[in-house]
Simulated scan of single mutants.
Amino acid sequence: MRILVTGGAGFIGSHIVDALITQGHEVIVVDNLTSGRKENINPAARFYFMDICSPEMEEVFRKEKPELVNHHAAQIDVRRSVADPHEDARVNIVGLLNLLKNCVRYGVKGFIFASSGGVVYGEPTELPVKEGYPKGPLSPYGVSKLASEYYLYCFAQVHGLPYITLRYGNVYGPRQDPHGEAGVVAIFGNKMLKGETPTIYGDGEQLRDYVYVQDVVKANLLAMEKLAKKSYPSLGKGIDGLAYNIGTGKGTSVNELFHLLKKVIGYQGEAIYGPTRAGELKRIYLDCSKAWQELGWRAEVKLEEGLKHTVQSLTPEIR
């Protein structure tokens, strides 16, 4: 199958590209390298250095004729979205619409969308959160992800474009940027390994659902199989019928995460505490039973094991 992966030079996207190529698929990568890295791109993929908002995306579709699009290119930083909601919407909404327009024009047969189970539900009162829980995003990033799900639903209804949404927890693992604004595991790990002091924002009791990147890759492969078999969920169930939470079903506090990393690395210091960040949720973790029932997917990598793999990727000398 010919598959276009947007954000295929990025953290999650590059792992998906590797898995697709291992399976024998023909892969096209589009990435503007804002946060992706060229060294992450599998040499067997065809690479286009391009912004997903560019009119030149049409030429990629015309030339490559992808059968499926796996969409991981995004502005992913909650704080950046609060500071510049216009740019967040440009990338996450206008970029999506540019892709969808070309999907319809060039006969794409399926679309996999990376949404965020960490932001679309808002601050839930019931945990773990199921897909049907009322939505209430508290950041422009969350709004853009939820709006994207509705656009996908609209294009499915109006144009017949099949899609599946994967609502991720906090994904971590090798290739996550330790110098970025998002990705606490890589950021903390990098600082500890350099003997620097990590900063925990707020009281550190915020709960998050940390899911290892290779588990996320498997969810994408299973979603692709479901689309290929034309057995995707009914449109009659709305956006939640077409969405799957992808997480572990367990909440881990930032304080607990810090101490687990401290143990893995052998770090002797303590964290410092900073002010709570705007738009940040207090508690979120996901009920992923639907993904098991309908995709045959569940998270398999335990947190401490995943942290060890991540730390090894940050430090070649530890391998």
Rank of each mutant, 00 (worst) to 15 (best):
L138A: 10
P140S: 08
Y141E: 09
L146S: 09
A147F: 10
Y150E: 14
Y153I: 01
F155P: 03
A156L: 06
Q157M: 15
G160Q: 05
L161S: 04
R167Q: 10
V171L: 14
Y172P: 04
G173K: 07
G173D: 13
D177F: 02
H179L: 14
H179S: 13
A182E: 14
I187N: 13
K191Y: 03
L193V: 04
L193T: 01
L193K: 06
L193D: 11
T199K: 09
T199G: 06
Y201S: 12
Y201E: 10
G204M: 01
R208H: 03
Y210M: 04
V211H: 11
Y212R: 04
Y212I: 02
V213H: 08
V213D: 12
Q214F: 08
A219P: 09
N220I: 01
L221Q: 07
M224N: 00
L227S: 07
K230E: 15
L242M: 15
L242I: 05
A243H: 09
Y244P: 07
I246W: 13
I246Y: 14
G247Y: 10
K250H: 14
G251V: 04
T252L: 13
T252M: 10
S253C: 04
L257F: 05
L261T: 03
L261D: 01
V264G: 08
Q268S: 15
Q268K: 15
A271R: 05
Y273F: 15
G274N: 01
T276M: 14
T276R: 15
